[in-house]
Design a protein around this nucleic acid. Structure first.
Lengths: 197, 197
DNA sequence: GCTATTAGTTTCGACTCGATACGATAAGAA
DNA sequence: TTCTTATCGTATCGAGTCGAAACTAATAGC
C-alpha cells in the first residue's frame, strides 16, 4: 500500500535522492589511500587546461581557499601523484602536472561507477535530468558564490581558426593546442549571456 | 552557438552537474559555525523517528563509523544543539534529542535553498529527475554499501490500524505515534522482498 | 553461568577546513 | 625610478573530520 504520489512528495523525494547520491559518491571516495578532497584535486588537474593547472585555479574551482588547496597539493605531491613546476615567465606561479602514477590512479577514479550507472539510463532521462540540474545549479549559484567552468571552445574569449588555422585564447593571448581547447578553463566566460546553453 | 548535443556529451554534462551541485551544497553548509557533517547529523536527528535517534543509527545513515558519529555528536552537544539521554530499558543505548536551540537552528538549514530551487522546477521535470536519480542510487548502492531509509508507513514491518486503530512496528513490537510513523527509520525494510544486500 | 554480541566511547595519526600572516613577485602610479 | 598596491603561493593555527582500533559496559544466547 504505497502512499499516493503528490507533487509535494516528489519534491521531498528529489531532495532526499540528491542528498543520498551525494553521500554515496562521497563515501566511495575514501579509497586507494585518498580522501574526497584529494580525488577532487586529482580529477581537476586531469581535466583542466594548461592555464588552469595552478593552485589558485584549483582553489577557485573547489570553492575553497588557496591555503587549503596548497595543503591538499602537498599531500598528493608527497604521495607522488603530482609535481609542481615553476612558471618560467611569472615566478610567482607554479604549474601542477600529474605524474604517471597520478594519471594511472585517475583511471581508477571511484566516480567511474557513476559514469556506468548514467550510461544505463535512457537518453531522454539523461537529457531531462541535465536540464533540470542545470536550472538548480543556476539558482543555487545566485545564492552562493562558486564558479562554473567550461571548455575553451565554447568560451567567449575563444578565437578559433584565425589565420593559419590555429586556435587562440583572447584573454591570455596565447595559442591553444587541441588538448587545451577541449579542457576546462578557470577563465571560462560564456559566449553571450545565458549560461550553459 | 551551442555545440550539438549528442548522447555522450549529455552524459558528461550530467556527471559534471551532479558534481557541481554537490560541491555547491557542500559549500553552503559551512555556516552558523557548523560544518557539513554536523548539519547532516542535525538534519538526521530532526527527521528520524524515536527508534533511530541513536548514535548507531546515525552512523549507519551517514555511512560512517560509530566512532566518527560519536565525535560529531560530542561537538554538537558541546554547542548546545542536542542532548543524549540514557534509555531506561537498555542501558547501552542513548537517545539523541534536539534542544530548542538545535530545532531552531534547523529552520535555518542552508539546504533550504535547494528546496526553493526545486519548487521552481516544472512538476514533470521533478518527476523524471526523481525517477532517474532513484535508478542511479540503486545502481550505486549495489557497488558500495550504504543504507536507504524510509518512513514507517511504507515499511514491511508496519502494522497499521490494528485493533484499537493504533499503528505498530512489527520489528520492535512497539506502538507508533503519528509522528513516529511519518519519520525515517533505520530499520526500514521495503514492503516486499529485497532488502539491500 | 559463560560466552558471544551489541552500543557507545575514546584514542590515534593523517588530513581538511577557514583564517591569518607571511614572503615573494609583478604591475601600476608618482 | 621608486613607491605602492595587487597577486600568487605557502606556512601555521585551532577545531574538527576521517577510518581504524582498542576499550567499557550491558545484553542475549546457550
Amino acid at each position: 500500500m504505497c502512499t499516493q504520489p503528490t507533487g509535494n512528495i516528489d519534491k521531498e523525494e528529489l531532495k532526499r535522492l540528491l542528498d543520498r547520491l551525494g553521500r554515496m559518491s562521497r563515501g566511495l571516495q575514501y579509497c586507494h589511500g585518498l580522501n574526497p578532497a584529494q580525488w577532487d584535486c586529482l580529477r581537476f588537474i586531469g581535466q583542466a587546461n594548461r592555464f588552469s593547472r595552478t593552485p589558485g585555479a584549483l582553489a577557485a574551482f573547489l570553492g575553497t581557499t588557496k591555503g587549503t588547496a596548497s595543503q591538499t597539493l602537498n599531500a598528493l605531491e608527497k604521495k607522488g601523484y603530482l609535481i609542481r613546476v615553476p612558471d618560467p615567465n611569472d615566478k610567482r606561479v607554479r604549474h601542477i602536472e600529474l605524474t604517471e602514477l597520478g594519471a594511472g590512479l585517475l583511471a581508477d577514479d571511484p566516480l567511474n561507477y557513476l559514469d556506468r550507472a548514467i550510461s544505463n539510463l535512457p537518453p531522454e532521462t539523461v537529457d531531462t535530468m541535465a536540464t533540470g540540474l542545470s536550472r538548480l545549479c543556476a539558482e543555487m549559484q545566485s545564492r552562493c558564490g562558486g564558479q562554473d567552468l567550461g571548455i575553451c571552445q565554447s568560451c567567449g574569449y575563444f578565437e578559433g581558426e584565425t589565420d593559419g588555422g590555429n586556435m587562440m585564447c583572447g584573454l591570455k593571448q596565447a595559442e591553444l593546442s587541441g588538448e587545451d581547447a577541449t579542457r576546462f578553463c578557470v577563465n571560462f566566460s560564456p559566449v553571450n549571456e545565458t549560461r550553459d546553453c
